[in-house]
Nucleic acid binder design. Structure first.
Length: 454
RNA sequence: GGGUAGGUUGAGCAGGUGGUGAGCUCCGCUGACUGUAGAUCAGCCGUCUUUCGACUGUGGGGGUUCGAUUCCCUCCCUGCCCA
């Protein structure tokens, strides 16, 4: 039987960056590529047709959530995940490893697996490496992820090592549990931000016969410098490894570049869709916050060089109105835009790697998103602020801070000192944005009846 | 005209039976969010003040009192009932 996926890549003259093609039974993915997150078999607010229009080539869905509801057996009976959600393109399923982390106070981890209290009804749920594979095989995704154990950057050295070793143990068990030959399985590198452990983990995972290597446990509160450091270590270990590399949970526009330069091929992140629903839009000139009062009278599109439906048909004023009014349509329109921006950005990066425009693109996007900057195009839009590293991990450990969520945070937190956010960034001139050539992506339809399991 | 219930910070309310009314929810303003327990969450939201704090504010006016949102008089406004 043919391998479940085929990946070919070529090096570029930009550091370790590479251009590749990932072929799956449900279509081809150009890399570097971004995967929108559709946790519950839905990228929130968007239809598959919407996703196609944004340029989406591959989606992520979630084992943990779909296993709890509606249940993997039901999805299997209904023809598998692709058919269930009417998305005929490639799908990668996450294993539930992230929920081990994010649902911290609802679970206990032991060497055999994880016991969760379901976030839906509190019932006890058991997830083991074997079960995570079985669920994903029932769902029928193109790429399955192994169950891993990640800890926050605030964790102790012993805690990081413990989680890493457990992750390695589980990686081997996951491979032994495989039954389907038509589904790829990716291993996940852990090791926190410790260079030694990162390298050790990368070697351990790379030694196993996975179809791809994921880098997990990053963008969980560590600084950008620490993340870059960990990526560099992994990139060194994987330098001659031909398999696709997937950086999990990243990222913001400026995060892509450093990762791609360390040889990363795939990304996923909730940011573009979550921020869209929360009113933050990404544009060729930086961030735009729909809640800001200045947009209420602004007849311009969100981004005049964007070709998405939202920018083509609607004004900032209208979107700002919808946002205030709580109209559900705004979620679709903003999500369409942010995903279009993100996928256009990936396409521009690929193009830049080919034609030498990469560095200029990197400089522009980084200046717009990595540092606070004004959006010269917006009216009355306050200083645009990137999240700063001082936000995270002050009194509370990262884990605790994330796990308790905003709603449960103690009322009285030490107030942040006002920062000099108005200085320094007056200089950044609006960069000329060059519309990207649109690669027409044809839906790869397959007959409805054709079973996903080959 | 008679009766009755009311009038509190943009809106809607809570409270207060003589001893310092700035409390809530909306609205509004500004942020946060990275393998989605997130159409969520946080801060601010009378005036002045970076902060500390100061000041003002219970429909208007008057009275009693050391002190009135509270008691008395009067006027204005609103809802409802009756003529």
């Amino acid at each position: 039987m043919a391998p479940p996926i085929q990946f070919s890549s070529e090096t570029t003259d930009v550091s370790r960056a590479r251009l590749g093609t990932l072929e799956t039974a449900h279509g081809t993915v150009d890399t570097p590529q971004f995967m929108p997150v559709g946790t519950q078999a839905s990228v929130k607010a968007l239809t598959p047709a919407d996703l196609r229009a944004t340029g989406t080539q591959i989606l992520l869905a979630n084992t943990y959530h779909l296993s709890l509801r509606p249940g993997e057996d039901r999805i299997a009976r209904l023809g598998g995940l692709h058919r269930f959600m009417a998305w005929d393109g490639p799908i990668l399923t996450d294993s539930g490893g992230f929920q081990v982390f994010s649902l911290g106070h609802l679970r206990t981890v032991d060497d055999d697996g994880v016991t969760f209290a379901s976030h839906l009804d509190g019932s006890a749920q058991r997830l083991t490496p074997e079960r995570a594979i079985a669920i994903q095989e029932a769902l029928g995704s193109d790429i399955a992820m192994v169950l891993d154990h990640l800890v926050g950057s605030a964790g102790s050295v012993e805690g990081v090592r413990d989680a890493m070793e457990r992750t390695h143990l589980w990686a081997g068990r996951s491979l032994e549990a495989r039954r389907r030959a038509d589904q790829a399985v990716f291993g996940i590198v852990q090791g926190g931000i410790d260079r030694g452990m990162r390298a050790e983990s990368a070697r351990a995972i790379a030694a196993l016969p996975f179809e791809g290597i994921a880098i997990g446990g990053l963008s969980v509160g560590e600084s950008k410098a620490e993340m870059a450091d960990a990526l560099e270590v992994v990139a060194g270990v994987l330098a001659n490894d031909p398999r696709p590399r997937y950086l999990m949970g990243v990222g913001a526009p400026d995060d892509f570049f450093v990762a791609i330069e360390h040889g990363v091929d795939l990304f996923d992140c909730v940011l573009p869709t979550r921020l869209a629903r929360h009113g933050q839009l990404w544009t060729s000139r930086g961030r735009l916050r729909l809640g800001n009062a200045g947009l209420l009278d602004d007849p311009r599109p969100v981004d005049d060089v964007c070709g998405c439906e939202t920018c083509r048909d609607y004004s900032r004023a209208y979107l700002a109105h919808l946002f205030r009014a709580g109209e559900l349509l705004v979620h679709r329109l903003t999500s369409v835009h942010n995903l279009t921006y993100t996928l256009d950005l990936m396409r521009a990066i690929r193009q830049g790697l080919r034609d030498g425009g990469y560095q200029a693109l990197r400089d522009r996007v980084t200046s717009q998103f990595a540092a606070p900057s004004d959006d010269p195009q917006s009216t009355g839009n306050g200083p645009l602020q990137a999240h700063s590293e001082t936000d995270a991990a002050s009194d509370l450990g990262l884990d605790e801070r994330r796990l308790m969520g905003n709603r449960d945070r103690p009322k009285k937190q030490p107030k942040r000192k006002p920062k000099d956010k108005d200085k320094a960034h007056k200089a950044a001139p609006p960069m000329v944005y060059e519309p990207m050539t649109v690669e027409v992506i044809k839906p790869r339809r397959k007959p409805r009846d054709e079973p996903d399991a080959g």
